[in-house]
Design a binder for these strands. Structure first.
Length: 155
DNA sequence: GCCAACGTTGGC
DNA sequence: GCCAACGTTGGC
């Protein structure tokens, strides 16, 4: 049984929910953490919902909803020497890093703050809070249902 | 911008 | 393969 949904973190100064709204769809690349990579490769499925998390900003927390529109494939930025996330140790014949594509669904009128999520008895157990540095993390069914309700998402 | 947490690296 | 040093993340 897989996760009901996912949390993807991004710094809005670099790429926020409004950028995704404008572009409609984006390649989620540059993930260089093995735990996050494993979730992208083995867990994230086509059609899965993704809570878009704003980090390192005035109000950190859930900023909107996206969905997975392309499942795991090799992250091309790992092979690009000019890219900040270039990894010379990633062999194109055995790619080390993984991307997925996500599409915009909706933006929240205001961010659900991290403090509110942490204080919620259902959401306080999110893996996000135990593995603070994880940029891709699963949300189990009960927690997803709670988050969906807080955010007012239909699906 | 401070600092705690923690994943990664590299010397041994 | 241990573990100290280092770098990065991310909330405050």
């Amino acid at each position: 049984m897989g996760a009901a949904g996912w949390i993807f973190k991004s710094e809005p100064d670099t790429y926020g929910i409004q950028d995704l709204k404008r572009e409609k769809r984006v390649r989620w690349d540059g993930v260089r953490n093995y735990t996050a990579r494993n979730f992208l490769r083995d867990g994230v499925k086509l059609g899965d919902p993704v809570a878009f998390w704003h980090s390192s900003t005035k109000v950190a927390g859930v900023a909107g909803l996206a969905k997975v529109v392309k499942a795991a494939y090799p992250d091309p930025t790992a092979f690009d020497p000019k890219h900040a996330a270039y990894d010379p140790k990633s062999d194109p014949a055995a790619p080390r890093w993984i991307s997925v594509d996500v599409a915009f669904v909706s933006a929240l009128p205001q961010v659900i703050p991290v403090a509110q999520i942490r204080a919620d008895p259902v959401l306080s157990g999110l893996l996000l809070f135990r593995l603070n540095r994880l940029s891709v993390s699963p949300v189990e069914a009960a927690a997803w249902a709670r988050l969906r309700k807080l955010a007012g998402w239909k699906a």
